[in-house]
Design a protein around this nucleic acid. Structure first.
Length: 493
RNA sequence: GGGCCGGUAGCUCAGGGGUAGAGCACCGGACUUUUAAUCCGGGUGUCGAGGGUUCGAAACCCUCCCGGCUCACCA
């Protein structure tokens, strides 16, 4: 509310005062409902033919429309289940109570009791015999025809978006269902859900810039986690054989239609499994979620239909990059030669990137946009995968896959590197690359994690899934902001 | 960070040098089965902010703020 009271607010404040003056508490503590609006409608559908069997109804909700005609009025009441029309009649309520209607506004909360009937236009309605004021709204709601479309306002005042737009409510219901379905699936497979620290003295486990903060009592800089990976593997070392965490991670990077600085990942780790087992798990989990939430494994958005039914194609990274770009990166083992080849092929590329970054560039430029159906790309070069175990038959490749869908990466997984000596070498390699290429987005050596590995970790398959992107795919949304309730915008007051 | 587009009433939007506009919302009145209720009356505003040009700026110029898309960035 602004300091200069808006006209509409002033009028609502006057009504609030009148309600108070009548000795009515405009913000009471509770209301005993007998039914949801949806249940009330259903009851009438089932028993409407025998009015004697209809119960007294008490529902509560927000007034979303008012149609006032002198001595009789209709209002729409909405609760979490739906809406119902209620009917106020001066004859029934008496002059005094009926007069109170003048102090109601759209947006107020109201509890009503009465009996169900059908109007002559066939709408199931509650004939109100009594009502209780439950909450006064001082601000007007968005307009009823066009609703709220201003994107900035939709995100900054998401509650208005949720009030105005049923599709938006549906998306976030689905997001919640996706996550609970994921939990059900993993719990059913014998995984145990755990929580690991968000505040860390070293942000490792992924290649990303962390957010920095400071702990005053310890006088120590801390970082917000960029992944849950290394702590979950410590738990595998500790003897838990199947663990997962669904949690927020933070990356201090650009904001885009596919990136939010804080986003939600699932990571799960399974002892004695390898990346092929994890591919099976991934297909099964995502298709199972789609079936539970959507009732089908297929999602149509625009002209494309994505089908999550397993099995998903499994294609070695080298093959698909060669097919899509004409470049076989194994023929260009150095950064300089690969960069020259990429340039020669006519693909724009920044100068001075590491070999691993160049391969990644080819992947994101020439391959990723075409991967619409769920697809596993496998066998990533070791330079690109500092936490993944080498393939026994080819030491330059790792037992790793990424899953792509809708032109986005949605999952990353590998046979976890459990050789502490190799892991230390890989961290050092990354540090060297950071020094050489001025690349901040590389793994930072986590000595505490290395110590854990030195105590012995069983062979382990690990998986990370971007839940926001998965929800985007399942709900057909093209912007990550449409699946995050309060996305990061440029500035907050 | 670059490019393009945008910011006008509570909401959705029109207006592009000459009195600030429409619909919904809101306020007053009428109306006992309405449902985008209807009918009569009322415009409620720092035209994103600041500076400049001009007799006159919401409009034109400059700077900034905010947002969207896009490029860069982003395992």
């Amino acid at each position: 509310m602004t300091e200069r009271k808006e006209d509409q607010t002033r009028s609502r404040l006057e009504k609030l005062q009148r309600i108070k003056d009548l000795g009515i508490n405009p913000y009471p503590t509770r209301y005993q409902r007998s039914h949801s609006t949806q249940e009330a409608v259903t009851i009438f559908r089932e028993k409407g033919d025998n009015p004697d069997e209809l119960p007294q109804i008490r529902v509560a909700g927000r007034i979303t429309a008012m149609r006032i005609m002198g001595k009789a009025s209709f209002m729409d009441i909405r609760d979490g289940s739906g809406r119902i029309q209620v009917y106020f009649k001066k004859d029934t309520l008496g002059e005094e109570k009926y007069g109170l209607l003048h102090d109601f506004d759209i947006g107020d909360f109201l509890g009503v009791e009465g009996t169900l009937f059908k109007t002559r236009t066939e709408e199931i309605t509650i004939q109100v015999s009594g009502f209780t004021f439950l909450s006064k709204a001082l601000q007007p709601l968005p307009e009823k025809w066009h609703g709220l479309t201003d994107v900035e306002k939709r995100y900054r005042q998401r509650y208005l978006d949720l009030i105005s737009n049923e599709e938006v409510r549906q998306i976030f219901r689905m997001r919640s269902q996706v996550i609970s379905s994921m939990r059900r699936f993993l719990d059913g497979q014998g995984f145990m859900e755990v929580e690991t620290p968000v505040l860390q003295s070293i942000a490792a486990g992924a290649l990303a810039k962390p957010f920095a903060t400071h702990h005053h009592a310890l006088d120590r800089d801390l970082y917000l986690r960029i992944a849950t990976e290394l702590h979950l593997k410590r738990l595998i070392v500790g003897g838990f054989e199947k663990v997962y965490e669904i949690g927020r991670v933070f990356r201090n990077e650009g904001i885009s239609i596919k990136h939010n600085p804080e986003f939600t990942t699932l990571e799960c780790y399974q002892a004695y499994a390898d990346y092929k087992d994890v591919m099976d798990l991934t297909e099964q989990m995502i298709s199972s979620i789609a079936k539970e939430v959507l009732g089908t494994t297929q999602v149509t958005s625009g002209e494309t239909t994505i089908d999550f039914a397993p099995p998903w194609p499994r294609i070695p990274l080298r093959d698909i990059i060669r097919d899509k770009s004409g470049i076989d990166f194994e023929e260009f083992p150095g950064a300089a030669s690969l960069e020259a080849k990429i340039r020669q092929t006519g693909i724009p590329v920044d100068a001075g990137l590491s070999w691993a970054k160049l391969v990644d560039h080819l992947l994101s430029q020439k391959v990723e946009p075409d991967l619409i159906q769920p697809t596993f790309l496998t066998d990533y070069p070791v330079e690109l995968s500092p936490l993944a175990k080498r393939k026994p038959e080819d030491e330059q490749l790792t037992e790793r896959f990424e899953a792509f869908c809708g032109g986005m990466e949605i999952a990353n997984a590998f046979s976890e590197l459990n050789d502490p000596l190799d892991q230390r070498d890989r961290f050092e390699e990354q540090e060297k690359m950071r020094a050489e290429f001025g690349d901040e987005e590389v793994e930072r050596t986590d000595n505490d994690f290395l110590t854990a590995l030195e105590h012995g970790m069983p062979p382990t398959g690990g998986l990370g899934i971007g839940i926001d992107r998965l929800v985007m795919l399942l709900t057909g949304q093209h912007s990550i902001r449409e699946v995050i309730l309060f996305p990061q915008l440029r500035s907050q007051e």
